[in-house]
Design a protein around this nucleic acid. Structure first.
Length: 318
DNA sequence: CGAGTTTGACCAGCGC
DNA sequence: GCGCTGGTCAAACTCG
């Protein structure tokens, strides 16, 4: 499968999705249709609607193909992971009975396999699972996000679409900047925690470490009235993927002002992606990582399904 | 006044 | 056992 073309397709899709939102007017009560200020007659309207319907159908087909491709990619990556794990059993069998040990092993897995931009599911052995209480198992799902902010910005705030409550701050030995501890406060039962600390190497980069999985949708997504993708919560934030010595990471650039021009954002992130992946191998690798992290995320797949069905519905209602 | 933040105290893991 | 360290708690405080 050609991963880079997959990305191109997705970008096109995004662009057309945007154009759909921008161009498709809200249901008019009158018989006339206004598009970009132009008044259409009923005939013109029906013609435009048919055209729109065709276009949306084509996009729907594209989305379906994309979803299939993502699933295929996911399956392929999963089998690769299984191969890797079977080839490196000693990594999985290393003692991790203690809390801190298990965390460092998680991070090692991040580095060695580099497949958990999203959630790590490969860290807990059966032996560990039997020893650890349920809370610890939940904690085993760790992901790390690098967020670029203004260096002068001292607030350790990472806008990720969720609602957080700070419950502690600590200065750690290896980093002069304080580490902030957050709990997800949107849902009382949500076990997710995050640690936020400025990077030692680059003070303008904030490292957010997430532990656990949300058992609810992001706050921003809950507020949305219609089905929207998970990307909406990040949609206003330019992001890029890169290969660091510590493994592949996602970097959100918060120094870029929140822009309503999503084309610009798309160009921005696309440009950053191109810059961060110089060789085709690296590009393909990054694409696979992103596909893997996205397909692993049940929120994303649910949001994607909602977006598809939502658009189908809106097509029918037009 | 309630919700969120700050911050010192406390606890547990780890190395010596 | 002891000290160091990271993580969490909870009272005090701030803010809307």
């Amino acid at each position: 499968m050609d991963s880079s073309s997959w990305v191109d397709t997705s970008l096109d899709l995004n662009a057309s999705a945007r154009s759909l939102r921008l161009e498709t007017p809200k249901k008019e009560t009158s018989s006339n249709l206004f598009v970009f200020g132009k008044k259409f007659s009923v005939k013109e309207e029906s013609g435009a609607l048919v055209e729109e319907l065709n276009r949306v159908s084509a996009e729907n087909k594209k989305l379906t193909e994309m979803l299939t491709a993502m699933c295929e990619s996911y399956n392929a990556l999963q089998s690769q992971l299984m191969d890797l794990m079977s080839k490196n059993p000693e990594k999985e069998l290393s003692p991790a009975s203690k809390k801190r040990k298990s965390e460092s092993i998680n991070n090692d897995n991040n580095n060695n396999f580099g497949i958990n931009i999203g959630n790590s599911e490969s860290s807990s052995t059966d032996e560990e699972s039997s020893k650890k209480p349920r809370e610890e198992i939940i904690k085993a799902k760790i992901s790390r996000v690098y967020v670029r902010t203004e260096a002068s910005d001292t607030t350790l705030v990472v806008k990720d679409g969720y609602q957080w409550r700070k419950y502690g701050q600590k200065v750690t030995r290896d980093n002069p900047s304080p580490r902030a501890y957050f709990k997800c406060s949107f849902a009382p039962s949500c076990p997710v925690k995050k640690k936020v600390q400025r990077s030692v190497e680059d003070q303008s980069v904030v490292v957010a470490t997430y532990e656990g999985e949300h058992n609810h949708l992001p706050a921003s997504q809950m507020e949305a009235t219609s089905g929207s993708s998970r990307c909406m919560s990040l949609g206003s934030v330019p992001c890029s993927a890169s290969l660091n010595p510590t493994g592949p990471t996602i970097t959100l650039d918060l120094t870029k002002s929140k822009s309503s021009n999503s084309d610009e954002i798309a160009r921005n992130s696309n440009k950053q992606k191109m810059e961060s992946s110089s060789s085709p191998e690296v590009r393909k690798y990054l694409v696979e990582q992103m596909a893997s992290s996205l397909t692993k995320d049940p929120n994303f797949t649910a949001a994607l399904a909602a977006a598809i069905s939502g658009r189908m519905f809106s097509t029918k209602s037009n």
